[in-house]
Amino acid sequence: MKKTKLIKILSTGILIFINLCFSACSTTSEHNTPVEDRTATTGSHQDTGKENNVVTNTKKEPETIQSTVAPDDEHHQESISAQSTSPVALAFLEDADNYTIAGDSARAVASLERGLDIEPKNPWLWNRLASERLQQKLWAEAITLAKKSNAFASGHKQLQKDNWQIISQASTALGDKEGARKADKMIERFSTEKT
């Protein structure tokens, strides 16, 4: 019983961590295929046995997450800032991940929008919604949602960068070279700012 609980805590932590850190992962090669990557990353937690409901254990310990995933500094910082957003938003992000894993994009979107009803200015929820639309190849919507996320993302550089990556990819898909070029410039800016 104890063991299952521990696994559950660990997996929950990993799931959240990876979801939030994913936006931080930003090598060019990764970014060329972020749609697949997202699914693959979250997909690795498919058999964690998590229920499809918004329940998280409040006694989640960041240490456990770190020791399991052993992130580099950048990831570490980003995960901490994301975790400090709010447990409610995290719960919905996790919920959405579970639906995405199950291939149920509609419910993932519904869950994120439910989160936005409670926290309408949470940039993580808007960002996650943008990537969901990107997966659905709803390019224009993905761009708007990423911009919306950026409107509330000041101070979260990795998140902003990820939003620009979404914009870049969706703009490319739309044939909007100018839009993609501008987005790439922003990505570069955030990359250099970091170093």
Binding site: V55, T56, V88, L90, I118
Partner: peptide, 11 residues
């Protein structure tokens, strides 16, 4: 608190 399984719920 979900009293049926003593779990803490966020929402």
């Amino acid at each position: 608190t979900d009293e049926t399984n003593a779990k803490q719920l966020v929402i």
